[in-house]
Design a protein around this nucleic acid. Sequence first.
RNA 1: GGCCCCAUCGUCUAGCGGUCCAGGACGUCGCCCUUUCACGGCGAAAACACGGGUUCGAGUCCCGUUGGGGUCACCA
Length: 469
Amino acid sequence: MTSESEQPAVVTRFAPSPTGFLHIGGARTALFNWLFAKHHGGKFLLRIEDTDRVRSTKEAIEAILDGMRWLGLDWDGHEYYQSQFWARHAEIAHRMLDRGQAYRCYMTQEELAAQREQAQRERRPFRIESPWRDVPEEQAGKPFVIRLKAPREGETNIDDRVQGRVTVQNAEIDDFVLLRSDGTPTYMLAVVVDDHDMGVTHVIRGDDHLNNAFRQLAIIRAMGWSEPIYAHVPLIHGPDGAKLSKRHGALGVDSYRDELGMLPEAVFNYLLRLGWGHGDAEIISRDQAIEWFDLYHVGKSPSRFDFKKLENLNGHYIREADDGRLADLIAPKLGLKDKSKEILARAMPQLKARAHTISELADGARFLFADRPLEIEDSAAALLTGDARPLIGAAHGSLAALAEWDSAPLEACIREVAEASGVKLGKLAQPLRVALTGRTTSPGIFDVLALLGRDESLARIADQMEPNE
RNA sequence: GGCCCCAUCGUCUAGCGGUCCAGGACGUCGCCCUUUCACGGCGAAAACACGGGUUCGAGUCCCGUUGGGGUCACCA
C-alpha cells in the first residue's frame, strides 16, 4: 500500500464484488474512475470485494478483469483482494471497541427479528436498538458482533461532486455491524479501511451507495482519518425507466462483445456519453475523453440505456476500424482459415458500410464463402423470374468473354448487356445479385463479381440460368 | 412507509439569470445520391412536468405539488 509521501493527488478505484459478470453499470463506474484518474495524472486502482466468500467465484473475477481489459481500462499495479485484509479490518474494529466507538452486541437473530416485527406492527421505521450499546463488560463465551456506536445527535453533510450537498440526520444512521460474529468484516467496514489504506482520494461509485457514504463517514470520523471526496453517479436504467435488469441489458460486457457484436471503442464512447456530456461532442476518442472528462458535467438524474444509439455508434466505429482487424473478428464466426481472410479483408470496405454489429458484418460476408449451388433466400428467389433468367444468361455470355476481370471492365460489360437487352440496369443487376449472393442486399454488384472471381461468378450465374425444378 | 436524491424533444444530452420563439446526437418521417441494401448529404416533426415566488428579466435561483429513482441485512 502507498505511503503518505509518494501519494499522487488523485487516487481512484473500482471495487466490484465478484458475484457475477462485469455488468454495464459497473463498466461505466470503472470508466469514470479510470477517466478521472487519467485526467488528473493520478492512479486508478482495482480492488476485488470478495468479502462474501460463498458468492465470490474465480470465474467472476476473471470475467471482470477480462471485461476491463477489453475496454482498455488498465489499472495501476496489481489488483487487490479485500479478503487479504481481514486481519487489518478486525484490528480496526477492535481499536474502535477499545476507544468506546463501537460495542459488542450479543443480541440473537431472534431478538433482532422480534424488534423488527414490533417496528413493523407499530408502523414505524426499524432501527436497531441494542441493549448492549452501553454495556462495556464482555460476556464470556457468548457470540457477539461488533457494532458501531453511531452518533445520535446532529447531522452529517457530504459535499458530493455529483449530487451536491447532501444532509442526513445522524439519528437516521443505525448501529450497523462492523465485525460479524465469525470475526469477518462487513462490507461497510472493509471499504472504509481499504480505501484509507490504499490512499484513495476520490470515491466515484453508483448512486446506490450514497446512503452508505454516511455510514462509512461515521467510521472514518471515528478513526480520525481524512475524508475522501465522494462522487455518486446516477444509475443506468432500462429502456422502460425501471432499474436495469437482466432482460434489459445488464448483460456482462462479454455479451456486448460476443453476442451483440460490439467494438470496445463503441461501448467506451457510448458509456462515456451516458450521463456525461461535453457540448455537442458525440464521437469522442479515448485521448479526447481523458482530456475532457470531469465530474462537474456528470448528470444528476439516471439515464436510460438506448441500444439503438449504441448500435449506431458501433456502426460508426466499424466503418472506422482497420479492415484486417475486422476480418480477424468475423473469421471465427464464419469458420474460416487464415487463407480466406485475404479476400475478406479485400471485401471489407464494401461490407463494413452496411453493418452495425460484428454479427451483421459476418452475415454480410457469408456469401463470399458459400458453397454452390447457393441457397437462395425466399425474398430473393422472387426476383429470379422467367424474364430474369434469359437476362442473366446474356450477362453470363458477355462476362465469359471478358478479357480483364476487374471492377471497371465488369461494370462496362454489365451496362452494355442491359442496354443491348433494352432494360434498365436494375432489371439485370438485381437478379444477378440473387444468383451471386442468394440475397437481395449486398455490396455493389460489380464489386461482388470482382470479389468472387471469374470462375466462381460464372458458375453461380450458370446455376440460376435455368429453373431448378 | 421512513430517509435521501432527481426532473429540457420518445432516448442520450447542451444550457452554469438576458445572446434560448431552447442547440447537438440517436430514433422517426421526407428528399437527394443510387443496380439493391447501406453509407453519405439536405430537411421536417419533436422538450424546458405543474403551481407559486425572487428578479427589470427564469430552462437557469427558492418553495410546494406531481412523477421517477435509490436505500433501509451479521449482501456487497
